[in-house]
Amino acid sequence: MPLFSSSFSLLRTRVPGRLWAAALCIALPAAAQQAPSDGAVVGPEFVASTQHWLDEAVAKAQAGNPAPLRMEVSIGSLDSRLRLAPCSRVEPYVPVGVRLWGRGRLGLRCVEGGGRWNVFLPLTVKAFGPAWVLRDNVLAGAVLTEADAVEEEVDWAAEISPVVADPAQWVGTVASRALVAGQPIRQSMVKAAQAFQAGSQVRVVAQGPGFEISSDAQALAAGVVGQPVRVRMENGRITQGVVQDTRTVRLAM
Rank of each mutant, 00 (worst) to 15 (best):
A57M: 11
G104N: 09
V73D: 08
C87P: 07
K126V: 13
S88E: 03
Y93S: 10
K60H: 07
T124V: 13
V119W: 00
G129W: 00
L100I: 09
W117V: 11
L82Y: 02
T124I: 00
R89M: 06
A127K: 07
F120M: 04
G107E: 10
L108D: 15
R99P: 08
V96E: 12
E91W: 00
P95R: 01
L106R: 02
L100P: 10
A57E: 15
D55T: 02
R103L: 14
E91D: 08
W101P: 01
C110V: 14
F120L: 13
W132L: 10
G114A: 11
R81V: 06
E45Q: 12
Q51C: 05
V98P: 13
A61E: 13
G97S: 13
A59V: 02
I75F: 01
L54K: 01
R99M: 13
V73W: 00
R103H: 12
G76N: 09
Q62E: 13
S77G: 15
R70M: 06
G102N: 09
T124F: 00
V133M: 08
G129Q: 03
Y93I: 01
W117G: 14
L121W: 07
E91H: 05
S88G: 14
E72Y: 02
L54H: 07
K126W: 07
P122T: 04
I75T: 14
A127L: 12
R109E: 15
A48E: 10
S88P: 08
A67F: 08
N118H: 13
G115I: 12
E72H: 07
A57Y: 06
G97N: 09
L78R: 01
R109F: 04
S49E: 07
G113A: 11
A85S: 14
T124A: 09
C110D: 12
A127T: 15
A61F: 00
L123Y: 05
S80Q: 11
L82N: 06
V73F: 00
D79A: 14
V119E: 15
H52F: 03
W53H: 11
